[in-house]
Design a protein around this nucleic acid. Structure first.
Lengths: 159, 159
DNA sequence: TTTGAAATGTAGGGGGA
DNA sequence: TCCCCCTACATTTCAAA
């Protein structure tokens, strides 16, 4: 089954193979998907060019690099002229790992990671100081069951 | 400044260097942090052994692989005997990208990605069918401002 | 497919805390 | 003493013709 206009089934299988370990050799991936090394290399290159692959990255255990504390912070704006400027300001805070604009009661949902609870307080003060931010609602993470799982693409592994 | 017991400053700088592009050669990283290629290699190997580096991965643009729809789903359990079994059941669903046990009004917060809104409905039915799940509250993502940013470790880049 | 260039990964020796 | 770094080299992988 064709997944979409950006990638075909073979691309999807290459992405799946690499997402678990992006340092696998192309020869290794090639034997898994049934292509030559050069063909895999060519497809990876094209997926990078098309923006399908954004970058090769590294999964670090946050607990072991001093980021033991996680919280989700919902942010509501005041409906004023500053609303458009909130996201860029939040991007400046390294503790804000991800930021989503959301529908519903709040306007943004931020995933935040710090060394400890006390440090979250500092970040919240900074967020509340951003013009246009009306209020924040924090949800403290007790335990992260899982995150950053290897990719599971729709339509792969069903044939 | 020593970040913590797991890594020192040099490790932190290596992680920072690799997190933006994990395919950078060790020689390249070595010249940046002021070590030999072999020393960088050795440190990376040890960080893998100690679990600091969990894996080398790949950042894929979800919009281009058929995952255009994102939602956060808060899950409340019924306080019964099945509560311990909810997380493993949620792990079986590939659409659930991450799962956190949280304090507050709800018990779990799940980040879910599907092809479209209709597909989220299917996932929600599956979640509600899990024994112990009392109810779910979904927050639809309108736009992801940013996520999976390159690492910014506390105590790095301040010296 | 082939082939040169480059990167990886291992071994052994040396120096500083 | 112990830990870490460096040089050197064999092997593997890359990337273009």
């Amino acid at each position: 089954m064709q997944v979409n206009i950006h990638i075909d089934d073979v691309d999807a299988r290459i992405l799946t193979a690499l997402s678990g370990d992006s340092r696998r050799s192309y020869a290794d991936v090639a034997s898994e998907v049934g292509l030559s090394t050069a063909a895999v290399h060519e497809r990876v290159k094209k997926m990078i060019e098309r923006g399908v692959i954004e970058r090769f990255s590294l999964r670090v255990d946050p607990d072991r690099v001093g980021l033991q504390f996680t919280a989700f912070v919902a942010i509501r704006n005041d409906g004023g002229a500053h609303c458009r400027d909130i996201a860029p300001r939040l991007r400046e805070l390294p503790e804000v790992l991800e930021l989503h604009s959301v529908a519903g009661e709040h306007d943004f949902l931020a995933k935040i990671r710090t060394t400890h609870a006390r440090a979250l307080e500092d970040v919240l003060y900074k967020i509340k100081a951003i013009p246009g931010v009306a209020r924040t609602t924090s949800t403290v993470v007790l335990n992260t069951e899982f995150e950053d799982r290897p990719l599971r693409l729709p339509g792969v592994g069903e044939g």
